[in-house]
Design a protein around this nucleic acid. Sequence first.
DNA 1: CATGAATGAGAATTCATTCAT
DNA 2: TATGAATGAATTCTCATTCAT
Lengths: 177, 177, 177, 177
Amino acid sequence: MMELVVEQGVHATPMSQLARESNVAIGTIYHHFNNKKEIIEEIYKMIFKDYGVVLMTNLPEDDFKKQFETIWMNLYNYFITNPLAFKFSEWVGVPPIIGDDVVEQMKPYYYNVRDFFLRGIKEKKLRNIHLRLIVQISYGNVISAVRLKDKGELPMTEKQVQDAIDCSWDAVKYVGE
Amino acid sequence: MMELVVEQGVHATPMSQLARESNVAIGTIYHHFNNKKEIIEEIYKMIFKDYGVVLMTNLPEDDFKKQFETIWMNLYNYFITNPLAFKFSEWVGVPPIIGDDVVEQMKPYYYNVRDFFLRGIKEKKLRNIHLRLIVQISYGNVISAVRLKDKGELPMTEKQVQDAIDCSWDAVKYVGE
Amino acid sequence: MMELVVEQGVHATPMSQLARESNVAIGTIYHHFNNKKEIIEEIYKMIFKDYGVVLMTNLPEDDFKKQFETIWMNLYNYFITNPLAFKFSEWVGVPPIIGDDVVEQMKPYYYNVRDFFLRGIKEKKLRNIHLRLIVQISYGNVISAVRLKDKGELPMTEKQVQDAIDCSWDAVKYVGE
Amino acid sequence: MMELVVEQGVHATPMSQLARESNVAIGTIYHHFNNKKEIIEEIYKMIFKDYGVVLMTNLPEDDFKKQFETIWMNLYNYFITNPLAFKFSEWVGVPPIIGDDVVEQMKPYYYNVRDFFLRGIKEKKLRNIHLRLIVQISYGNVISAVRLKDKGELPMTEKQVQDAIDCSWDAVKYVGE
DNA sequence: CATGAATGAGAATTCATTCAT
DNA sequence: TATGAATGAATTCTCATTCAT
């Protein structure tokens, strides 16, 4: 049921359409969720729970840079292959729809990502700057690439993707004190 | 009249409130604009026309890196001191509200920014990657910093801002073939 | 539901009143129809589907003139006893509210009336003039009578009705080449 | 000024357009008329004052039937050459926009038409039926013809117009007791 | 006399949510 | 548990009219 909802996307679509597209009656939806906000939060949870797993998939051993690049590509590919998840995460950020409590709930799912960055900083693989900043910049760089592809502004050839990764890495890699 | 509109912001606010907040009657607004989309597009134009000028203000002579940093700070400061403009530009991107024609109209205002990046690439100050990509990454990095500040996630001290700039510069600076 | 709508009439009444008078919420109306035009067209269809049946009711055998008079009276009585249908059909004609497609859809319902006139012409009971003209004149004559009655300009006594019928018949009856 | 207004037509056009089309400022219109109803009534007066004159133009001497036909054609031609006046008179009838007092004021302008019909009845050129009825039927017949032409349903060739006139005449001509 | 920006009540329509079946 | 008709507050937009210049 929820799968359907996500597949179809909630974007800014009215509940009525959402119901029609999911082939469930409106009433049925309100059996499972109390209101629209709850649905959105549930999708939010679904998607963001994924992140923690998705991002850390297929990490190569040892080489920190390669690990960074793999994480980068994992996120990039996730968004490219799940454009609805991308749209949704773009959507959801703009007006603060998601309650702070929900955001808080999700934090544990990022612990491994956070730890990756923390380790990078500690081991002098990454710049010694505020964790939140380095994460945001990295995330933002992936988003930049995805947007260019998504809006059709760039084809994002293999080389262009590699260029974007290179930029990202040089942005955050350790450069000495 | 339009100044008021921008000051107050359009957020996702209903026309009625927008009118009340601007101290003009709804009818008055529709005397000047044909529909909501047109208002939004007009604000879009106002803000984005600024960019070309704002970004290139107080550029230091000669040193490309310093110029880049100045542009970076110009945009950062513009958004920090005009949070409504920031909110608005975040808003406006998400569902494609702005007609392609309007976007096209605005391009000339960025020519000087574009030329700055083009020159940087040609003069081997910047990486030799696709213009659109390098611009988007740079822009995205500023936005990342502004967001952290805007959402109160980071205080963005002078050092943190400088860190962000450093990341940005290292992301795009020339690194040899 | 639709019955209510017709009973109450659409005059030029706002949807809101229409809803209130029908004792349904506005939303409910829009649950069944997409917009005002659609409501009007639906009423149009209801009324005009009646015509084909109403007009040909109780036709006497054989005597063409008597048949003509019966049809005339059928329409006259229909409008007199359904003043809302009359008002509605007066309304609806003036600016072309009804889509051509809907008008086209309704044509089959008039086939028997059309055929009656065609037969009359062929059998030299009616003037040999353009079908559309002879129909319009006959229809117009009924409308003239109904209007006089409706606006209270004439009581339309039995004699006056008969006078009107006589005029109509003489207007269209066969008069030799 | 008023000429312009009529030329452009009032149909159901908003005052704002009416002003724009007349190349007069809205304010100016409200200098001359107190409200929209007054404008419409003024146009109504203009057009209907014409009638009395227009209808009785170029009446042939003596032959009553020829006079009837001339009046018929005068009205028909007036509407065909002044489609806006036709539209207007169709419009104006439907919801009772025009105040009864105004209608009353106009009556004197029809006296000559009324007298023509009265004379016809008295002189046994016309059926001895209620004046209002015979006038309405005659008027209605002209309108029927104009409508067919106006809506493009018939080309209204010379023959078709003559057919319509013949119908009209036979509808009202004296037929003995 | 002429102007047109300003007004705001009211119209059409949307959509999250409820509730009887 | 599932349904979807019903709801009505909220939203966008229209248009007759006013009034300061």
